[in-house]
Design a binder for these strands. Structure first.
Length: 226
DNA sequence: GACCAGGCACATC
DNA sequence: GATGTGCATGGT
């Protein structure tokens, strides 16, 4: 394994030792994972859970039920997740893509090669790279590493990436450095989010961070854009 | 009241 | 092709 790969594994182990196994994704069914992946775009997970709760209560946790629901009605239900008009549209786009070929069978929709599935997901308006990779890794349980704002910020602060490295470059870094193991990639991304939430906010101090023993520059990574 | 949160598409230059 | 902007609620 490369030097960077060793460092990433050590960081993963340090986070895991401190924070415990994360057992992601916090969604019950493949469909809920997909919906959550769209709803959590630039949004706090707590707000997403409220929106998912509303959908559950309304009996809309199936592709056909969502397909039959008017966009405006959907928007009202997911209001707590923010950006509710654009997200209602995005959910409808995703649901239409599944429904057209597979009806209610989300598992069948997800059951194809990673490149094909990723291409299919990225063709859906409102599904970008992070959302697609989250769906592949956490709903389809297939190897596609997820990069997010926390990943970027943590790696930048620890000098493992450059400020202008883009999504695909960071994804490639993990995928080439770590053994291809769905469970490892699953928990590794989850650990990055857990560390990010607790210790690596834009303006947060690093005190008590499980990664504080690794060389880092706290001033780096204060800008989230990548 | 400011700042932040597990992005993405689109307009404009 | 790079850069800027709109989308919006809820917690700290």
């Amino acid at each position: 394994m490369s030097q960077t790969g060793e460092t990433l594994m050590e960081m993963y182990r340090a986070a895991h030792a401190r924070l415990g196994h994360q057992a992601w994704w916090p969604g019950e069914t493949p469909l809920e994972v997909c919906l959550g992946a769209i709803l959590t775009q630039n949004t706090n997970w707590r707000n997403v859970e409220k929106a998912l709760g509303n959908l559950r209560t309304a009996g809309l946790m199936s592709v056909s039920a969502l397909h039959a629901t008017p966009q405006g009605e959907l928007a009202e239900l997911i209001r707590p997740a923010g950006y509710y008009n654009v997200k209602a549209k995005r959910l409808k786009n995703f649901i239409a893509a599944v429904h057209e070929d597979f009806g209610d069978d989300v598992t069948a929709f997800l059951d194809r090669s990673v490149p094909t599935l990723r291409e299919t997901l990225l063709a859906i308006n409102g599904v970008g790279r992070e959302t697609a990779d989250s769906i592949i890794l956490y709903a389809a349980h297939k190897p596609s590493f997820v990069v997010d704002a926390y990943t970027y910020r943590i790696l930048l602060r620890h000098g493992l990436i450059y400020e202008d490295d883009d999504y695909e470059a960071i994804k490639e870094l993990f995928e080439s450095c770590l053994p291809e193991d769905v469970d490892l990639w699953n928990d590794c991304h989850a650990q990055l989010v857990a560390v990010g939430k607790q210790y690596c906010r834009p303006t947060a101090r690093c005190d008590g961070c499980p990664l504080e023993g690794f060389p880092h520059d706290p001033a780096a990574g204060r800008r989230d854009e990548y």
